[in-house]
Structure formats: C-alpha cells, structure tokens
C-alpha cells in the first residue's frame, strides 16, 4: 500500500507539468511534434540553413551527418531542407482536404439528420454511393478529372472524406435532437434555427472534432500516396510522398526513403494520439 502510494506520488511529480493540465506525456509529445511540424510549414527557412532546390553535385548521396542531418539526395541537395520545405504543401493540403470533408460532409449530415424525411433519404443514398466507391480510387478519379497538382489532390482527398463526416454528423444530430433538453428548449419557444446553432451543433462537434483530427492524419497519408504515384506537384517540389517516390529509385541510399517516411509517420502518429485523447476526454 505504502509502496504503491509512493510510486504513484513519484510518478505524479515526474509528470507534474503535464498532469496539471490533465495531459498524458504521450499526448504532450504528440503536441510538441505537431508544433514542430507547424513551425516547419510556416517558417521553413528558420529551421534549415540549406537551400532545398540548389544542390552541390560534389556532395551527392551523402549519408546523414552533422552538416546534413538527413543526408543529401542524388543532386547533392540537403534532404533535411527538402523535407522541411515540403512540409507546408504536405500538411496544408491535408488541412484543405479535412476542411472540405468537414464542411460538405458536415452540412450534408446536418441537413439529413435535422430535416429528416425526403432530404434524409436522398442524402443517405448519396452517402451510400460515396462509401461504396473505395476512397482511394475515388480520390484518384477526382484528381484525374481535375488535373495533377497538389491542390487538386487535396480536393480529391476531401471529396473522398465527405461520406464519413456526413455519416457521423447525421447520427450525432439525430442523437441530440431526441435529447430531453432539446425538447425542453423547443417547448419553451426556441426556434429550429436557435436549437440548431445553440444545442445541436455544439453537441455534434464533440465527436466530429476528434474525427476531423483523425481524418487530418489520414489525409496526410492519402495525399502522400497521391504524390507518391505522381498525381501531385512535379519535382522540384518536395512533398513528402514525392520525396519517397524519388527515393525508391535510389535504394542503395535508404535515408532518401526513411527520412521523409519518418516525418510522415511521426506526424500522423501524433495526430492519431491527439484524436484518441480528445475522444477520451469528452
């Protein structure tokens, strides 16, 4: 009893700065990684002294070292600089995708759940259709129709996420609409509009927010996949997926694959951890 208490105390002291905020250490680490990634995408110049586009041919394909943290690529460009400078388009395109999915899907789910009846039936079929098409294939045909660049890849990824958001939003709205406090609000004269904004949306956002964070990570993967297949911006852009796609032709110098891959994995893993934490704290 005493021993367990003591160990609990020491553990508490160890994690005191996070425990005060109610944040487990792994989540704190996830937030730190995320902050770093945001820093990379906002001010890449601050994090790397090398130029991502101009290489020194004499220094090509060097292993990671103090001068070049992630090594150099086949043209002698610093790989760390390329990863850092590729962050902005890799991450912001995923953000665009999530925003599209969230708004379009959220609106569909909201209307379907709140209005019910025919609107619900029509939207439910639309969502069924969107879910039936494998989401990566859906993203591929949309990006094919729109043309190959990173923004279009983001839009395509967003379209492929619409159905999931619509589904969750709809079920949340229906759940809230039947709650007693909504009935009370309606009986005491609250208009539909008032109920929608004041009660239904805030309640639904509780489970939609963790989903959005989760889909953010997933969108990074999908967009990296599209970039890997060559459906994003062409080189010399340095999207993470594109970097790996270039690296696969230089397998004898594996850091060309592993460095951008670790950037992707660390980012997505952090987002997944945060999403799970958000779900639990609700």
């Amino acid at each position: 009893m005493t021993i367990s208490l003591a160990s609990a105390l020491s553990r508490k002291r160890l994690h005191a700065p996070f425990a005060a905020l109610g944040i487990p250490p792994s989540v704190a680490l996830a937030f730190i990684i995320l902050a770093l990634v945001i820093g990379w995408s906002l001010v890449p110049g601050l994090f790397s002294g090398h130029d991502p586009f101009v290489g020194v041919p004499a220094d090509k394909l060097q292993a990671p070292s103090i001068a070049h943290w992630f090594g150099t690529d086949q043209l002698g460009r610093d790989l760390y600089a390329r990863v850092v400078h590729g962050t902005a388009s890799s991450v912001s395109s995923a953000l665009i995708a999530v925003v599209i999915g969230l708004f379009v899907g959220g609106l569909i789910g909201l209307l379907a759940g709140f209005l019910g009846g025919w609107v619900d039936i029509i939207f439910a079929r639309l969502v069924d259709v969107l879910l039936a098409i494998p989401s990566f294939l859906l993203a591929v045909i949309v990006v094919t129709a729109l043309g190959f660049d990173t923004i279009n890849a983001a839009i395509a990824t967003g379209v492929s996420a619409v159905a999931v958001f619509a589904r969750v939003m709809r079920s949340e709205v229906i759940k809230t609409r039947q709650a007693t406090f909504v009935e009370a609000s309606f009986l005491s004269g609250g208009s539909r509009w008032h109920i929608l904004l004041r009660h239904v949306l805030p309640n639904a956002s509780r489970s939609v927010l963790p989903l959005a964070v989760l889909r953010f990570g997933l969108s990074i993967l999908v967009i990296a996949g599209l970039a890997f297949l060559g459906y994003g911006d062409p080189p010399p852009a340095s999207d993470w997926g594109l970097l790996i796609s270039i690296g696969k032709d230089y397998m004898k110098w594996p850091w060309l694959i592993y460095a951008p891959a670790i950037a992707i994995i660390a980012t997505v893993l952090s987002l997944n951890r945060i999403s799970r934490w958000l779900r639990k704290t609700d």
């Binding site: 796609s245 891959a261 992707i264 997505v268 893993l269």
Partner: peptide, 18 residues
Amino acid sequence: PSLFLSVPTFVIGLVLIH
C-alpha cells in the same frame, strides 16, 4: 494498430523491399 495506421502503405512496401 495505431502505428500500423500511421505508416503509408508504400513506405511499408519500400521498407520490406529494402
């Protein structure tokens, strides 16, 4: 499972090939 879901499929493939 959480780790597996954070790794792009093509990275898994390339690591296995490597």
